[in-house]
């Protein structure tokens, strides 16, 4: 893996902007990271971004922080991780520090409340755009197993409120079984 320190500033700036402007949960910001690092900068591959997201489920802490540690590591090693995490945590630190001084006014301001409410649909548009592309690519694999897993996982998360960690965990087990079965079959053919 080659490390590229010239990318550090862009890495910091990108994570800072994403973190400053993204409301609502880890999976939201991950879809924005995908847009930035995969589509725009072409630093990492789409599959890699999905892998990273899955891996973050096996670590504690906020998904965004975990994802930025791994993406940062990929771009520039441990220094990259530090830079990416700094970019991720600085905006909420700055914003909350300022707000905590007069949060009563902030909480009751009708303009802020309206802007935050409307921004949600903007965020939704961005995510659904990413989802359309990603789901298309899963369908393009033409593996029925993967397509069924995607649909079932969606229902599990959206309808039944099952935790992301559990869903990824179950898919991990299915993946391992899949490998064992394929390997077993090949062995039999050889024998």
């Amino acid at each position: 893996m080659k490390k590229d320190y010239s990318k550090l500033w862009t890495l910091f700036r990108s994570m800072f902007m994403l973190s400053a402007c993204t409301f609502g949960g880890g999976f939201v910001i991950v879809s924005l990271m995908k847009k930035k690092f995969v589509e725009e900068l072409k630093w990492i591959e789409e599959d890699e971004m999905l892998d990273v997201t899955a891996i973050t489920q096996s670590a504690p802490g906020p998904l965004v922080v975990n994802a930025s540690v791994i993406v940062g590591y990929r771009i520039a090693g441990v220094i990259g991780s530090l830079v990416a995490v700094l970019g991720t945590i600085l905006p909420p630190m700055i914003i909350i520090s300022i707000i905590s001084l007069f949060y009563e006014q902030f909480r009751t301001n009708p303009y802020i409340a309206t802007a935050l409410q409307v921004m949600r649909v903007g965020v939704a548009a961005v995510i659904l755009d990413v989802v359309l592309n990603l789901a298309g690519n899963v369908i393009k694999t033409k593996r029925v197993l993967y397509i069924v897993m995607m649909i079932v996982a969606f229902l599990a998360a959206f309808v039944f409120d099952i935790s992301a960690m559990a869903i990824v965990g179950v898919c991990l087990v299915i993946g391992i079984v899949d490998v064992v079965v394929t390997y077993g079959r090949k062995k039999k053919e050889v024998a």
Binding site: V123, A153, A164, V170, L172
Partner: peptide, 20 residues
């Protein structure tokens, strides 16, 4: 194994997007 986890991640992003 990793590619078996990818559809789940897509589904989780979709679920988060629809909720918001």
């Amino acid at each position: 194994v990793l590619s078996a986890m990818r559809p789940a991640v897509v589904a989780l992003i979709a679920s988060a997007g629809l909720s918001i």
